[in-house]
Amino acid sequence: MHWRRLLKVLHRDIGYLAVGLTIIYAVSGVAVNHISDWNPNYRIEKTTLKLDSIPYQLSKDEMVNFILNTLNITDEVKNSFRPSPNELEIFLEGKTIHVNYQTKEATIEKVNPRFLIKETNDLHLNKVKGAWTYIADVFSVSLIFLAISGLFLLKGKNGITGRGAWLTVIGFAIPIIYLLIYYMINN
């Protein structure tokens, strides 16, 4: 088989295999790239309620029961903690209740994982570890192969000896020029 024909076959089949992971990594890339603007893994809802009274004399466990009864919450308690003499935190499954004795306020914090986006982030950031580390390595090598093989798929004026060369140079120039300007400004 001619080398260009072989390259096309490999580029095509590896390309098909890489579609799923490329979409996963791209979606997560956008999600994580804007981490300063939003939480890419969880949607956190906070609701603050005013309490009529706080019976200070109660022990921690009694106070936990009092707060849950007052707020009409029946979830099972995982644990509780007092960060300061005037605060209490109650940990429930997927929920935390912060109680401030001074302001007589209870803030219910509900944590909801972002469907599909959290899963793409777990894969992209390799939270799952183990064998995924090697699968991701193979995927990275595949992307390098696809990038390089893509350069040589076409012959002629639209190939790497013509228009393709200019576009490839522009592609390399964008990050290089951006970094040069960044270093010049910041040094």
Partner: peptide, 13 residues
Amino acid sequence: GVIVFPMEIKGEI
């Protein structure tokens, strides 16, 4: 990135 703790572990030992 070395360890990513999930929020679900809040309240665990």
